[in-house]
Design a protein around this nucleic acid. Structure first.
Length: 411
RNA sequence: GGCAGGUUGCCCGAGUGGCCAAAGGGAGCGGUCUGUAAAACCGUCGGCUUCGCCUACGUAGGUUCGAACCCUACACCUGCCA
């Protein structure tokens, strides 16, 4: 069995951005890399074979969702997440930390990246009808599936993730919104730090209990919202944390990130974290965000955006994003994106996709998702290639200049 | 032939004297989506020279200060009876 490790192959002149390779028991991940999201052990609407064919190096599933359904024991008995879903490559699982927010304070609310512009009441939940409630020891969830009560603690999350058997798992953390008070951010950060310690300890214990199994890496998650001192403190704390001879194998960067200072925050964190361990930026995939984060030291990403947006008819291209559902595409007998090398663009037209979406045919989601995921994976691959080739800045200027230029020829 | 019911905006369908350019749904048109409660959600949806005006609720006429709503005739549709 191969173990876990990270090698840096090239660095940007700023000493933060880099290209490298993450080694896992199920194969290598060349970084920077976009990790395709498969929340419930499936990339919605797409076969794993197709996901592999579009160039995805690894998939990320969610511990909370798989815990509720089908249950960690089932996935374990199936031989782990990869075997269960027929994905031979590396896998990640998220801890369920995001659901503390999305089912809790962000319940039924617009959780915008630029939430500050939307006004408080839109984002802060009412409290009584939320599905998740945080306390210092953990989180009580009401299942969104059937109303059952469930309790997640750091130990439960790590245990669930050990059953799921992904190569890389994340510590259980609490997300905050940009609208929480500074005092709450500090309180939450401290809670997340203590949870990180408990995750590491439980991880060490379980690893010792089952030495026969392939090593599962555990990443600590850096919170701290938009505050420099909190972000740096969190990175230093988790970077140096040790429990029973174990330390974090890598780090997630999560939480409330305003688009405008996303790169800045990643930079603060990268400066404090050990250089020899990989950094995963959670939940990010817009083209400009990739550049901003990668040049500041982010190595991997995951995001629902390419697939979610695809299911609703939005298509990414080098010239920007457009909706295929628009009437202008009714007779557009051309690929979704000129020159795209994805399986969809090889055989299907905008007009056909337009028709499938209008007819509410499921194939629309499949074909659009294949394209958007390919677009996203290919972009990050190209960034890696540019770093390795030493022409990152030129590639960045080219790509962003074209992607964000307004183009009325876009249909 | 008789009796009863019906005819509303692109479609379905509420509305029975003023608060009705007319509920609701669908279609159409446009948009949103960043560790997935998403095959979701939002906006718009008669026309115009848009604080108002015009045209509209089968057709024609009437009652009324005022009609999609009441009356008369006609046309078409549906059910029951012969």
């Amino acid at each position: 069995m191969r173990g876990f490790g990270f090698d840096i192959a090239a660095e940007l002149p700023n000493g933060l951005g880099r290209a490298g390779v993450i080694h896992t028991p199920h194969g290598d991940i060349r970084t920077p890399a976009f990790i395709v999201v498969a929340t419930k052990a499936t990339v919605k609407a797409v076969l794993p074979e197709q996901v592999g064919a579009l160039g995805a190096q690894a998939l990320l599933a969610n511990a909370y969702h798989l815990y509720l359904q089908p249950g960690p024991d089932i996935v374990d008995a199936a031989g782990g997440l990869g075997r269960f879903m027929n994905w031979p490559g590396p896998t990640f699982t998220d801890s369920g930390g995001f659901q503390v927010l999305s089912l809790g304070a962000g319940f039924k609310k617009v959780l915008s990246m630029d939430a500050t512009r939307h006004g408080t009441e839109e984002v802060i939940a009412d409290g009584h009808d939320r599905l998740a409630m945080v306390d210092d020891d953990g989180v009580t969830f009401v299942s969104h599936l059937n109303g059952d009560r469930h309790r997640f603690t750091p130990e439960v999350s790590v245990r669930v993730q050990h059953h799921l058997g992904a190569d890389i798992m994340f510590a259980f953390d609490e997300l905050t919104t940009l609208l929480n008070t500074r005092a709450y951010q500090e309180e939450s950060l401290e809670r997340t730090r203590r949870w990180a310690e408990r995750c590491l300890a439980e991880h060490a214990r379980l690893q010792g209990e089952r030495p026969d199994r392939p090593y599962q890496a555990l990443f600590g998650v850096i919170q701290g919202a938009q505050y420099e001192d909190l972000r740096r403190r969190a990175a230093r704390d988790l970077g140096s944390l040790e429990a029973e001879g174990h330390r974090f194998d890598g780090f997630g960067i999560g939480g409330a990130l305003e688009k405008e200072n996303l790169g800045t925050i990643v930079g603060w964190v990268s400066e404090e974290l050990p250089r020899d361990r990989p950094r995963h930026l959670l939940g990010i995939s817009e083209p400009d965000d990739f550049f901003a984060a990668i040049e500041k030291g982010a190595d991997t990403f995951d995001c629902v955006n390419p697939s979610r947006v695809a299911r609703n008819g939005a298509i990414y291209t080098a010239d920007g994003r457009y909706n295929v559902t628009t009437a202008a595409n009714r007779r557009a007998f051309e690929p979704l994106e000129a020159g795209c090398d994805c399986a969809t663009c090889a055989h299907y037209t905008r007009a056909y996709l337009h028709h499938l979406f209008k007819a509410r045919e499921r194939l629309a989601a499949t074909l659009a998702t294949i394209h958007n995921e390919r677009f996203t994976v290919r972009l990050v691959d190209a960034i890696r290639a540019a770093i390795l080739a030493g022409d990152y800045e030129a590639f960045k200027a080219d790509f962003l200049g074209r992607f964000y230029r307004r183009r009325r020829s876009l249909a």
